[in-house]
């Protein structure tokens, strides 16, 4: 299966391209230049594997949660390319990519994926890594300190991954029963591996939107 994977949920922009035999994985930028590097990066990768856009069968895109400006670029590019090529669009979350990435690198047991949400909050979800990766609970927005206190209190062995861990490293490293695993960018290798999932329309996952909508509908202004 010929698959393109697009990752723009953090400050980094990465792509993966595979045709079943060959695979290229590229970090195109790590400094929020998504809009500048993504399309040229895809064109170059296709060229390197001697493929054209219309050859793509599946496009896997990280739909968040993460950096809003990055997600917009990644999703718009994925949707446009899927429309033009006829490829099936598959949406995955940044949190599950971190979990699957850690799993592929041999991490087992309880894992908490943590994506930097800016301004004092992180996007997070818990997983159980055994033979398979199982989600435990839904993605949520939390204060890093609350997350750290909850795990330090319950005492269970846990691994933390994601760029949110990098930002609040001292807090997460202080959990005596916790380990910090260095995996900041949701890995496109994991996105390629999830390409066989059921496809369809993909919408961004912002997480803060629901609260904001509630707030918006009760707004008090003349």
């Amino acid at each position: 299966m010929r698959v393109l994977a697009i990752e723009t949920a953090t400050t980094a922009c990465a792509i993966g391209l595979g045709d079943g035999e060959r695979r290229v994985v590229r970090l195109l930028a790590s400094d929020r230049r998504h809009v500048e590097v993504l399309a040229p990066g895809i064109v170059a990768a296709l060229g390197d594997l001697d493929l054209r856009a219309r050859d793509l069968e599946r496009i896997v895109v990280d739909r968040g949660p993460g950096l809003f400006t990055g997600l917009r670029v990644g999703l718009a590019t994925a949707v446009a390319l899927a429309d033009a090529s006829g490829a099936i669009l598959v949406g995955v979350t940044s949190l599950e990519l971190l979990a699957h990435g850690a799993h592929a690198l041999g991490v087992r047991g309880s894992l908490v994926a943590v994506v930097d949400g800016r301004r004092g909050e992180v996007f997070t979800q818990r997983f159980e890594l055994g033979d398979e990766v199982l989600a435990r609970g839904e993605p949520a927005v939390e204060r890093p300190r609350d997350l750290v206190i909850a795990w330090a209190t319950n005492g269970a062995t846990v691994t933390f991954v994601g760029d949110g861990v990098a930002r609040y490293r001292a807090d997460f490293a202080a959990v005596p029963n916790g380990a910090v695993y260095d995996l900041g960018v949701p890995p496109v290798e994991a996105a390629l591996a999830l390409a066989a999932r059921e496809g369809g329309a993909v919408t961004p996952l912002y997480l803060r939107e629901a609260d904001a909508v509630a707030n918006f509908s009760t707004r008090d202004r003349p």
Binding site: R119, R208, F216, R221
Partner: peptide, 13 residues
């Protein structure tokens, strides 16, 4: 009028 969409901006404001 930022308060009408406050959750979008996170808590550290």
């Amino acid at each position: 009028w930022g308060e009408i969409a406050a959750p979008i901006f996170g808590v550290d404001v």
